[in-house]
Structure formats: structure tokens, C-alpha cells
């Protein structure tokens, strides 16, 4: 059975689907990704589907599930590179992939993820300020 490779880039996992997905491969990817998110402590997942010439409801559901799982594991999922014909077909099929973030390409997806992290950013607690007396 084919297995889709999962690459780690810093705290982001990158999955580039290059084969016509059989259903078992799709399910396998779901499992692999959940494990890798926990094992690597990844904060973001990018799924590149630019090589897929169709996305049917099975693959659509996989994308939604991965997004939901990664959210539970505190990671953000971005689906990138959907082809126009695929997008038009998905709309017609009635699949709007609610709750899934999308980006045009991997570069944009990295921007989206880093923005999400900026929002999380908390200024370091400046303990000195608290303790130092307001010296005249």
C-alpha cells in the first residue's frame, strides 16, 4: 500500500499528496499525521493537494478530520494548492470544507501559521519592573 510521507519543517508538518489516493491510504494518512503531531509537538500542519486532480467526499472528509484532530492537539491545519477545477467540483458536490483553513500555496500557508502564532505570543513577564521600586 502507498504511504504518504510526512515531512517536518521546524514546528510545521508538511504533507504533499502526490498519488491518486486509495481509501486505505487516506485513512492511513489520518493516523500517521495524528501520531506525528503528538510525537513532534508540531504547531502547524500543511497539506499540499496541488497534485490531486480530484477530491471526492472521502478525501474531503479526511481533510476535515485531520483539521479537527490537529485542533484538539493544538496544531493548526492549512490545506494548500487546490486546483480551480477541483474547487468548482467540490462546491457543486456540496462540500464546503467548513472549519478548514486554506491557502494558495505553501508559502502563504507558512504566513498564515506564523500569524496564528503571533496571536498566541505573550510578552515575557518582566519581573524586574514589578520588583524595582519607582525610583525617583
Amino acid at each position: 500500500m502507498d504511504r504518504v510521507p510526512v515531512l517536518k519543517l521546524g514546528d510545521v508538518l508538511l504533507v504533499s499528496i502526490q498519488v491518486d489516493l486509495a481509501d486505505k491510504t487516506t485513512v492511513q494518512l489520518e493516523e500517521d499525521l495524528s501520531e506525528r503531531i503528538v510525537a513532534t509537538g508540531a504547531r502547524g500542519v500543511i497539506i499540499d493537494i496541488s497534485a490531486l486532480d480530484i477530491v471526492d467526499s472521502f478525501v474531503g472528509r479526511m481533510l476535515a478530520t485531520i483539521a479537527a484532530i490537529s485542533r484538539v492537539l493544538d496544531a493548526e491545519t492549512v490545506v494548500v494548492g487546490m486546483r480551480p477545477a477541483v474547487a468548482i467540483t467540490l462546491v457543486e458536490l456540496g462540500l464546503s470544507l467548513h472549519g478548514i483553513q486554506t491557502a494558495l500555496n505553501v508559502e502563504r500557508a507558512l504566513e498564515v501559521l506564523s500569524r496564528a502564532r503571533d496571536d498566541d505570543w505573550i510578552p515575557p513577564l518582566d519581573t524586574e519592573d514589578d520588583t524595582a521600586p519607582a525610583a525617583p
Binding site: 481509501d23 480530484i54 471526492d56 472521502f58 468548482i88 467540483t89
Partner: peptide, 17 residues
């Protein structure tokens, strides 16, 4: 057309499953 190809392949995929 490319879009129509994609539509019929997707439909066939759904039905074959």
C-alpha cells in the same frame, strides 16, 4: 473540458465507492 472531466471523475468515484 477540464472542469467537466473533474466533475464526472468525482461523480464516478463517489458512486464506485
Amino acid at each position: 473540458s477540464l472542469v467537466d472531466q473533474t466533475k464526472v471523475v468525482t461523480a464516478a468515484s463517489e458512486l464506485a465507492r
